[in-house]
Design a protein around this nucleic acid. Structure first.
Lengths: 204, 204
DNA sequence: TGCCAAATGATAGTGACTCCCAGAAGTGCG
DNA sequence: CGCACTTCTGGGAGTCACTATCATTTGGCA
């Protein structure tokens, strides 16, 4: 039904909704760049996007979701991770999966740049940063399932949750570091350093 | 100056402030138990505690801080961790530090029970859960310093941040699991399972 | 006792977000 | 094409956490 990758929606209604959503987000990012996140009021964004405030909240449940929700069709990491052989050690699988994600992102021009800019915004706004982990582990996301299968434990088990929490916690910090400290660094290199750090210090 | 462990404040003013703070929090927890977190309005809490709404916000900057801020004098984990030998592997040091924390908590009657009840509240309220990691790594907390020293890297380095993020992420999930799934489980055993999981799956 | 600093309370705001309802616009069917 | 049906939109009123300001009170201390 829905969620088919890179398939333009059929009806006029659907196309209009997508356009409105993009216009709202574009307007928001424009205003954020000018005056910052917190100084930009929601009704101002709505006006800039030529919709009413009510409509704004129909598209984005909270102001933070403007930054946190992604419309990129794929959830790359979970997909790439699921593609790795199950008998591979977790960190090895994650490493390769992330490399693959970066490669995919490099395919679309400006994608990495946009991702980093988005992370800078996230890093600089506390209320957004607080909710980052939600975005990293979406409800429908298969990341937990993939990890669970890899370690042979149920999805809701302590072990799976702990592992997911650790990996996401590590990469949350890596992303914030990327955005805030080393914006020019190579994404792949940072990912490798992240995983090396885990491998070196989290054993025995 | 301040922050001396278990030292009763001298002036009447200080004593009164502490009492007010406790009264507000007690009133809040009472109301939360009756009607839930979100259904309890701040002015209702203030009234129940016999203070004005203004005063409430002087004591707790946000409603969430009622649950998140702790008044326990020590920051046990960072202290216990700092007490471990620096050449000990990170996970070993963390394991012993947590065991020590649990032992300390068992000393004060009802402390573990209260901690678990608090975690249940945190786990059940999204807005509070989102800010849990703040509480786990306070600004003045030495956890980052302790880890940094242990791995021989600067506090703000990617490696230190990643390690801290991973450990806190893991234990965040462990705490939520404790509160939500296995409330009767032994805290020490859960901590061990958490660390074992990290050690087993986050290497190579 | 009397002065100063700090704590309190009341009031008026702000801004994100919700509810509700009436009208407009897209959709499917004859 | 035209007509019913559903969905989307705009507007207005309201809620609630939180802020700013100022007058009043209260504890600390010489």
């Amino acid at each position: 039904m829905r969620n088919a990758c890179s398939m333009t929606p059929q009806g006029l209604r659907e196309r209009k909704k997508l356009r409105t959503r993009r216009e709202i987000r574009d307007a928001a990012y424009r205003l954020f760049a000018e005056q910052g996140f917190e100084a930009t009021r929601v009704d101002r964004i709505a006006a800039e996007a030529n919709v009413s405030t009510s409509t704004f909240f129909r598209y984005f449940p909270t102001k933070e979701d403007l930054v946190l929700s992604e419309d990129t069709p794929a959830r790359p990491l979970s997909v790439e991770l699921a593609a790795r052989p199950v008998d591979e050690p977790v960190l090895t699988a994650v490493r390769h999966a992330i490399h693959a994600c970066v490669t995919v992102a490099e395919g679309e021009p400006g994608a990495l740049e946009r991702a980093r800019h988005r992370m800078e915004l996230i890093a600089s706004v506390p209320s957004v940063r607080d909710r980052l982990h939600e975005t990293m582990a979406r409800p429908g996301d298969d990341l937990a399932e993939s990890l669970a299968a890899r370690i042979g434990r149920p999805v809701d088990s302590l072990e799976t949750r702990v592992l997911l929490g650790a990996v996401l916690g590590a990469f949350r910090e890596a992303l914030l570091h990327w955005a805030g400290v080393e914006p020019e660094a190579d994404a792949r290199a940072l990912a490798d350093r992240t995983i090396d750090t885990l491998a070196r210090h989290l054993s025995a």
